Computed example of a mutant assay.
Amino acid sequence: MRRVMLMDIFTHPIAQKYLNRSGVAHAISVAEYSVKLALKHDVNPDIAAKSGLLHDIGHYEWYTNGEWDFEKYKKNDIHAIKGAERAHKLLIRLGEERASAKEIALAILLHTDSYLPENSMNKTTLQQIVRMADEMDEEPQGKHHYRKISKDDAIKRIERLDNLIEQLFIDLRETV
């Protein structure tokens, strides 16, 4: 049973603040890709969706003279570290199971190697899924963070994901 729905996360003021900073359209796309990959690799789609949705909530905006500075961002970025902390705190506050909140936070922490030596860690399948889903939605120079989506379209896509995950769990219970 899911204790925290994606809509609970998405509509929370803390999530809204940071999702708007890092790109709502990108976050939702990564959540959608994460679910597809989770189904393919036998990973919990709920945990994957939450990890995908929150994977970039640690972003800081790097500007020089009022313009996005991609090079400054690449050089100084630790968004995965900050995002893991923010996501964990938010999920616990919303009532997510502690083990799930930790698993999601670790997937967020390890979705990028931007602050680690390349391929320096063995990652779980969930951690690999979030990284792959993020890469599937990337655009050059970080432009994926600036794609626009209306609030109504965002809500519809989150509702669709919540409904899909609920149906997957119903189907799983019926086959057991």
Rank of each mutant, 00 (worst) to 15 (best):
D113H: 10
F70L: 08
Y60V: 15
I57H: 07
Q16F: 00
D77T: 13
S22F: 00
K151S: 04
A80Q: 08
W62F: 15
L161C: 02
A99R: 13
H79I: 11
Q128C: 07
H12E: 15
L54T: 05
I155S: 08
E138C: 14
A105P: 12
L168Y: 00
S100G: 03
K143R: 14
K151M: 06
E67L: 06
G58P: 15
K143M: 06
A101K: 02
Q167I: 02
L168T: 06
N76K: 14
L90A: 06
E96R: 09
E71Y: 00
D8S: 12
S51Y: 00
N20Y: 01
A27C: 15
L106C: 02
Y33W: 11
A25T: 10
T64M: 02
L126Y: 00
L94V: 08
K72N: 05
R86G: 03
L116Q: 13
G58L: 10
E118M: 09
R157V: 07
A107I: 04
T11V: 13
W62A: 14
H111S: 09
K89A: 05
R160N: 11
G83Y: 00
E118G: 05
D171C: 13
D171H: 06
E118F: 03
S22N: 14
I78Y: 01
L53R: 01
I47M: 09
A101P: 04
T125H: 01
E97R: 14
Y63H: 08
D137H: 07
P45G: 04
R98K: 13
G95A: 11
A84S: 14
M121H: 05
E118R: 12
A107H: 02
L94E: 10
A154H: 02
D162W: 00
Q128G: 04
L54Q: 05
L53N: 02
H145K: 15
I155N: 12
E159A: 08
N44S: 10
E118T: 10
E97P: 06
K123M: 09
Y63L: 09
A80V: 03
L91T: 03
E85H: 05
I9G: 13
K50Y: 00
E96D: 10
S34D: 02
L91N: 08
I104F: 01
H145F: 06
F169Q: 14
Q141C: 01
M5C: 11
L19H: 03
D113I: 11
S22H: 08
P117Y: 03
Y146A: 15
P13I: 05
I28R: 07
V130M: 10
E139Q: 14
D134F: 05
R86D: 05
D162H: 03
K50Q: 11
K82Y: 00
D46P: 02
A133L: 11
N76Y: 03
E97S: 13
H41G: 07
T64P: 03
R2K: 06
E61L: 10
R93L: 10
D77I: 10
I170Q: 04
T11K: 15
D77C: 13
H145Y: 07
G52Q: 01
H88Y: 06
S34G: 10
R160P: 02
L106I: 04
E166L: 05
M136Q: 15
L37A: 07
N20Q: 10
A31I: 09
T124R: 13
L39N: 07
E103V: 05
G23A: 12
I149D: 12
A84R: 09
L126G: 12
Y63F: 04
A107E: 01
E85C: 04
E135K: 13
I57T: 08
L94Q: 07
L39C: 13
H26T: 15
K143T: 01
I47D: 03
